[in-house]
Amino acid sequence: MDAETPVASPPRRPRVVVDEPARVDRVFDAVTFWSGFSVLVLLSIVGLFLLTSSGDSLGQTGLWTFLTRVEWRTDVQPARIGVLGLLVGTVVVAVIAVVLAVPVGVLAALFITDYSSARLRRVLIGLVDLLAAIPSLLFGVWGFVLLSNQMVPVSRWISDHFGWIPFLATEPNRDLTGSMFIAGVVVGIMVLPIITSVAREVFSQAPPGEKEAALALGSTRWGMIRTVVLPYGKGGIVGGTMLALGRALGETIAVALLLPQVPLVSKNILEYGGATVSGFIATHSGGDPFTVSGLMAAGLVLFIITLGTNMMASVVVSRSRSGVGVEL
């Protein structure tokens, strides 16, 4: 900068100006600072506590063993606990949920932004928000009592027709309720509003000028969406998907109701069986300190995974062209 300043006027130093804050402002600064800071401290405490109290079980089991062992038995001496069986279930359920929900959610978002009238749009936005506000418990009981039975023929049909795909096969005469597939469907419906609202948000920000330009060039509506809206909203779709994945990974109550919560690594997602980290924690309350420490460790692993997913979501969204103003 100094190089650009002409020689005639030597660089000047700014004057130091102090504005003594008023007393109210000093109180204001202190109060807001301490509330912000205490939130930070609070979370640090939660994180540290999770770490230290996981220490007991992790120390005894060993981190690597804990991460790679499938079974969870505290009735034997020494206890054999591991998180792999839970993690596999968590990831499988979340992936099924997201795979099912993303196409529907994105299309529904398109319907809201580009196919519905202004009035219908407002109603639909409200309904999607409402769907997001419904507690996961209600989705859980709905899935547990209604969907679970309704889905059995579906599962059977899929396994009959697509059984040649390894993970869709079922053994004859196996119970098809309480499967990871059904849990995935329920969680998928639960995360549907997340994907829909994030995608809607970015689609609605697609530049109207470019949209009109596409239509003016004689493109059909779908052509316009394919060339303008979808490329523009790509970041939002990916970000919304990651966000939904994060939510699906942490979902507790629905999977606690739907899955038997017995840790295992199964490749038959249509069959009875499966466990997820959060569901497993929810169904194993009131244990001894060692169990709780183990559950803490499992919770910590889950927390780290959801944190990573969420952070990736926000990075993806903020890097994309459409994501600048989008709140996750």
Binding site: P14, R15, E20
Partner: peptide
């Protein structure tokens, strides 16, 4: 940042201690 003076009624508004 700034430098110089701004006199309001002959008194510098950036005078030290002025609010």
């Amino acid at each position: 940042a700034l430098d110089g003076e701004v006199l309001l009624d002959g008194e510098d508004v950036y005078r030290h201690g002025r609010r």
